[in-house]
Design a protein around this nucleic acid. Sequence first.
DNA 1: ACGCCTACCTGCTTGC
DNA 2: TGCAAGCAGGTAGGCG
Length: 293
Amino acid sequence: MPELPEVETIARELAPLVRDAVIADVWLDWPRVVRHPAPDAFAAGLRGRTILDVGRRAKWLVLDLSGGAVLAVQIKMTGQVTVPPATEPRDPHVHFGLRLEDGRELRLRDVRKFARVGLYRRDKAGTVLDADEARALFAGHGPEPLEAAFTLGTFRRLLRARRGRLKPLLLDQSFIAGIGNIYADEALWRARLHPLRPADSLRPAGERRLYEAMRGVLSEAIERRGSSIDDYTAPQGDGEMQEHLDVYQRTGQPCHRCGRPIRRIVLGARGTHYCSWCQRLPRRSARARAEGA
DNA sequence: ACGCCTACCTGCTTGC
DNA sequence: TGCAAGCAGGTAGGCG
């Protein structure tokens, strides 16, 4: 389930593998994998370019190409990136490949065909150039939670402007970029906050706990190279954060703090895991919810 | 404008 | 045993 730490891990491990490689040709068998521009223009715009570096923005892989081009890869739920020799047979779930001049192929494998790629242009400031393109890509994304500019003060300001419940809010990429279902649940558990808690009901201490929990769990997950659950794996193999999760997919197992069983509810069609003892709703929120207010 | 819901996908799990 | 419905979830787009 690739979220910020998983995509960051892929970017870090992919960069040394493909830096300075030249794109000889583009292969794809599922036109809808190309999000922008049209497939013909997409392929023509990639041929001959050199891969300068690989980075990450939100849950996107960002490949910096020569000539100010940017190849953005969104792996979504089940996407995997590999760089095998081009002679290695493609398995049926590989839907996109960049043939490299050195005889390898950068492949995107995605069992569920949710992944998307797009070709964009970069401006001098390093942001995406064309206005329409930018809107299509990163304009709707909130701040990067691990960057120094994302301070506790910033977080408080954003949080107090929102009225929804904490769990759906953490999943909203326009609020903060990069958090998904796993780390939303983990951050709320660490901060001892109920997933249904209204975002604007936190006291300053709760805001601080959530801020530190988000940054802490994301940083720790990067150190452990992500959570290898279902299909996620990185170029250098599986991560190990899945062995250190406190609530995600631990329904019925004892809470690592209080020993009571972890509960699972469905919230916005997402499985949500929490400890009903450690993450209680304040009485006022509970009553307001019961009254439908 | 904002929050909430569904479609997009297919392999795996569950239930009859 | 076999088959079908249900489930998983990031996010674009539709709805109220």
